[in-house]
Design a protein around this nucleic acid. Structure first.
Length: 615
RNA sequence: GCCACCUUAGCUCAGUUGGUUAGAGCGACGGUUUUGUAAACCGUAGGUCGUCGGUUCGAAUCCGACAGGUGGCUCCA
């Protein structure tokens, strides 16, 4: 850590203490949890029992914090023997602190792994036995803490309280829920102001806002939450990105299949999904007494296509591809825009292969994912999602070990940087997840490649090997976009709604200078020609000023806008207005009608995101 | 699901401490205008103030339930 970062860190941490001090002054009965530094700021978890803090209280709290800062209280460090510390927690009626101290006593210097190490007053390194813990005191406020802090409260940095949110004590759902007060803090007021501006800009490109403004999708409280409805424009988006993602796998010999969206519940008892997600499947029953569920995954259906005829080792790999919707009963509080929905459309694919083919299949998929996201202009980070020690996984531990090892080897082979996510695996196997970051800095999983030994076993899939014996194939699951809805949420924010020509719902807009017949006719002829080339084009011949129609086209973020008037009719030359982000050099372009249309059609076909009109 | 907050016209938002017929801009529609690269002018329509219930002489405003949404927590096959 650089000296600057160190100062920033301790200043933010000190602000967490100051906030706790202020809250304690205002509500002396408050029970404190932990208060660590996070990206851009800090938080403190508090518990006021029945009473709840709301954002309306922030001005008062901030005022009190400023008073404490003005008082210039010294941050003083001292240590206490662990038992004495526990006594302190008891006396001051701080049950959460008491629990932490008891854990510290039991677990020694190694902090309980679900807590931020900074939070606990563990004694400096080298102490094997934990006899003492450190405290920091400012004014009357004493807190278990490892530090470091700034010298005194007056030495902190500009801050702002942002929001209050519920948070379970130690992140466990069964624990009491506390209130988490979030604040941001930066070295200078200017940086803080910049951060606020950045937040505002991120909000401006929020996919939910753009979805409304650009008429891409909508929700209906009647239809239900988490069930997006795509408008004609939004549907173009869906279909274009899907075609794009499918093209990669079609080049690799994947074949399209089709399956219904429901299945007998036994399907998921066999697959193992029922056991882990019993409440998440919605049932309906048939006259004959079968219980049917909406499919939460596609793999079981696909296994049955594989199993529908005998397979030889020569047939493998068998590669299926399908973009289809699955239904999951996501908890209401987790839904949000397109990021998390209940009807999830996956660009799913399943490969049934021999063990010696796994590497080849993975290599193809990794390469395609890299290429695809380069074209999309999205930077992805890689996470290897492995299992934890829990027992909710299918298959033997040994098989998992082998699978995880081979995934890690592949990542290394492709020289991909990765992090390992323990406990992030699917129930049936480890995954390679490609993560994107949204406008607000939240990480989201998009592409995923998963290895699965468990389901072939459960569905008793077979092929005949070269010796004429029955053998078990391995499954590889892959989605390049992941969920189309979630992908679009990221992509809309990434592009700020300025889609490249190949995805743009409206690629060209013609604006007539007036409503005279010859002008309108010329525009309509042009429109016909463009449609023959497969372009998405519209004509704006409304009775509005040219300036206003240009403005409207700008706001719809149309890539090319062409004004049609006498000049164009006479010369058959167009001066297209090109959306700013696609321009590669300054200056106007004049181009013949046919050449213009052909150029745009080519751009759409080759999926480039800058104009090629200057060439 | 849990905690906090939000819901007024198609959209973005005003609406004083509860008090007459709830406002604006944009959009839509009608008319005038025939327009040359980011907003021409005039007019009209549009709201059971999310839904249901309660308190009150009186509710957009206060209380409750439900629905939907936002920010987190937890979860994410």
């Amino acid at each position: 850590m650089s000296e600057n970062n160190e100062h920033l860190h301790s200043a933010r941490h000190s602000l967490a203490h100051i906030m706790a001090t202020a809250v304690t002054r205002m509500w002396p009965e408050v029970k404190l949890g932990i208060g660590p530094v996070v990206e851009n700021g800090f938080y403190y978890d508090i518990d006021l029992g029945e009473q709840k803090i709301s954002e309306e209280d922030f001005p008062k709290i901030e005022k009190e914090m400023k008073r404490i800062i003005k008082e210039g209280q010294k941050f003083e460090r001292f240590t206490k023997p662990i038992d004495e510390a526990i006594g302190w927690a008891k006396d001051s009626e701080q049950p959460y602190k008491e629990e932490l101290l008891n854990d510290l006593k039991r677990a020694g210097t190694t902090v309980a792994k679900d807590l931020d190490a900074d939070e606990l007053g563990t004694i400096t390194e080298g102490d094997s036995a934990l006899d003492e813990v450190s405290f920091y005191q400012n004014g009357d406020f004493v807190d278990l803490c490892r530090g470091p802090h700034v010298d005194k409260t007056s030495k902190v940095i500009p801050f702002k309280l942002m929001r209050v949110a519920g948070a379970y004590w130690r992140g466990k759902e069964n624990n009491p829920q506390m209130q988490r007060l979030y604040g941001v803090a930066f070295e200078t007021q200017e940086e803080l102001d910049n951060y606020m501006v950045m937040l505002k800009e991120a909000k401006a490109r929020d996919h939910r806002k753009l979805g409304q403004e650009l008429d891409l999708f909508t929700f209906s409280s009647l239809i239900g939450s988490g069930l997006p409805l795509f408008t004609p424009r939004g549907t173009v988006l869906r279909e274009e990105v899907d075609k794009f993602a499918q093209s990669f796998r079609q080049n690799r010999g994947y074949e399209k299949v089709w399956i219904p969206h429901i299945a007998k519940i036994d399907t998921y008892k066999t697959s193992g999904h029922y056991e882990k997600f019993p409440e998440l499947l919605k049932f309906t029953s048939t006259e004959s007494g079968d219980e049917l569920a909406l499919k939460p995954v596609n793999c079981p259906h696909h296994t049955q296509i594989y199993a529908s005829r005998p397979r030889s080792y020569k047939d493998l790999p068998v590669k299926y591809l399908e973009t289809t919707t699955v239904y999951r009963d996501e908890k209401s509080g987790e839904l949000g825009g397109l990021t998390r929905v209940r009807a999830i459309t996956q660009d799913d694919s399943h490969v049934f292969c021999r063990e010696d083919q796994i590497e080849q299949i993975f290599s193809e998929l990794i390469e395609d994912a890299k290429t695809a996201y380069e074209i999309l202009g999205l930077k992805l980070s890689l996470r290897l999602s492995f299992r934890d020690d829990g027992d909710s996984y299918l298959g033997s531990k040994e098989t998992w070990e082998i699978a995880q090892k081979s995934i890690e080897n592949l990542a290394n082979k492709f020289e991909l940087e990765y992090e390992i996510g323990i406990g992030e695996a699917a129930i049936y196997g480890p995954k390679m997840d490609f993560m994107a970051t949204d406008a607000l800095g939240r990480k989201t999983q998009l592409a995923t490649v998963q290895l699965d030994y468990a389901q072939p076993e459960r569905f008793e899939l077979e092929y005949t090997n070269e010796k004429g014996e029955k053998a078990r194939p391995v499954m590889v699951h892959c989605a390049l976009l992941g969920s189309i809805e979630r992908f679009l949420s990221i992509y809309i924010e990434h592009t700020a709604g300025r889609f490249p020509v190949w995805v743009a719902p409206e690629q060209v807009r013609l604006i007539t200078v007036n409503q005279e017949d010859k002008t309108v006719n010329f525009a309509q002829e042009l429109e016909e020609k463009a449609k023959e080339l497969g372009l998405r084009i519209t004509v704006d011949n409304t009775n509005e000023s040219v300036g206003k129609k240009i403005r409207s086209a700008e706001m719809w973020k149309v890539p090319y806008t062409v004004v049609i008037g006498d000049k164009e009719i006479e010369t058959s030359q167009l001066s297209p207005r090109i959306r700013r982000d696609m321009v590669v050099q300054e200056g106007d372009v004049t181009v013949g009608v046919d050449e213009f249309l052909q150029t745009v059609a080519n751009e759409a076909k080759s999926r480039i995101n800058k104009t090629s009109l200057f060439a």
